[in-house]
Design a protein around this nucleic acid. Structure first.
Length: 331
DNA sequence: GATACGTGGAA
DNA sequence: TTTCCAAGTAT
């Protein structure tokens, strides 16, 4: 019964192919490892809509893993700026160089799993999609689809169920079929069950409460934090620095400033920018200083887009420039 | 197993 | 406005 359901989903996917825009259509076999690897890393916790233009720019600039591996760190980090989760970019660099050093991509899930930035999901996805291995990539879509089909509220039971359900010989297409279904029909909220090719096989749909599978995660409060950013200006330039190589926004261009704290600093800021991170909200107080503080460089305002600023600092700088204009008009 | 780690779009 | 959540990984 469940084997028939898998077959039905696979056929549905191959007829209504709406895979990732840049990926070869279903049924075309193995896909180019470099592109699969790069896109799967970009897609970690990031939507297709966000990734698509960034992925296309990346492969135009660095068409092969060799060209990417040879590029300077700062250029790759700058190209990644705005995509978030910057450890991915740092791991991407290390991973590209490790792959080139060993003479090419490993083709097995186990070997892929050893590379930096490739966890259980991504290693399985590359093995299945690029190398045709019978790997089982369980992402949040697969988890949800399997949880609902089999009526499993407990997420820890889902991985084994997926492994038992996965069709042999079609792992890559089936993974993409599940992910497309999860993204378009079997959504977290308001799933479109009437349009689902698995409706007749779905335990959660039969129970009438698909949204309870898998069980919703407990949510927690997001603390509020505060930061200072030094605003040193000269003609049409602003003083920037590079953040420490690890941790939050690690290795990225930034406005200089002290470590963030839980208390709002006593300061008279030029501008205050509020930014939501995954695990806390930050108020960044941009404060004028007469001279540059710490190591860094003068960045021409006309070339700010080339600086590779993460969104927090890009927006904070926009807010500061706006405040400067307002003050000039008021004076 | 729990936590740190970005950002943007949808409801 | 707030909350949720997205083709997760590292520690």
């Amino acid at each position: 019964m469940h084997a028939k359901a898998a077959s039905r989903l696979l056929h549905h996917y191959r007829e209504h192919a709406r895979a990732l825009p840049w990926r070869a259509p279903p049924g075309s076999g193995r896909q180019e490892p470099y592109r699969v690897w790069l896109s799967e890393v970009m897609l970690q916790q990031t939507t297709v809509a966000t990734v698509t233009p960034r992925f296309l720019r990346f492969i135009e600039r660095w068409p092969t893993i060799e060209t990417l591996a040879a590029a300077p760190d700062e250029q790759i980090l700058a190209e990644w700026a705005g995509l978030g989760y910057y450890a991915r970019a740092r791991n991407l660099i290390a991973c590209a160089r490790a792959i080139v050093a060993r003479g090419g991509f490993p083709s097995s899930e186990a070997e892929l799993r050893k590379l930096p930035g490739l966890g259980a999901y991504t290693a399985a996805a590359i093995a299945a999609i690029a190398f045709g291995e019978d790997a089982v990539p369980v992402d949040t879509n697969v988890e949800r689809v399997v949880a609902r089909v089999f009526g499993l509220a407990d997420r820890t039971e889902v991985r084994a169920a997926a492994g038992a359900w996965w069709p042999v010989g079609d792992a890559g297409d089936f993974a993409q079929a599940c992910m497309d279904l999860g993204a378009t029909v079997c959504r977290p909220k308001a799933p479109a069950c009437p349009y689902c090719p698995l409706r007749a096989d779905c335990r959660a749909a039969a129970l009438g409460t698909p949204e309870l599978f898998p069980a919703p995660k407990a949510r927690k409060v997001r603390p509020h934090r505060f930061g200072l950013a030094w605003w040193a200006r000269r003609d049409d330039e602003v003083w920037l620095t590079r953040r420490p190589a690890t941790g939050l926004l690690g290795g990225m261009a930034a406005l200089p400033g002290p470590e963030w704290s839980d208390e709002r600093p006593a300061a008279n800021p030029l501008a205050v920018h509020r930014h939501g991170f995954t695990h806390f909200t930050l108020d960044l107080l941009v404060v004028r200083v007469a001279e540059p503080i710490g190591d860094g460089w003068w960045q021409p305002l006309a070339d700010l887009a080339d600086a590779g600023l993460p969104t927090l600092y890009r927006r904070a700088i926009e807010a500061a420039l706006h405040a400067e204009r307002e003050r000039r008009l008021a004076a």
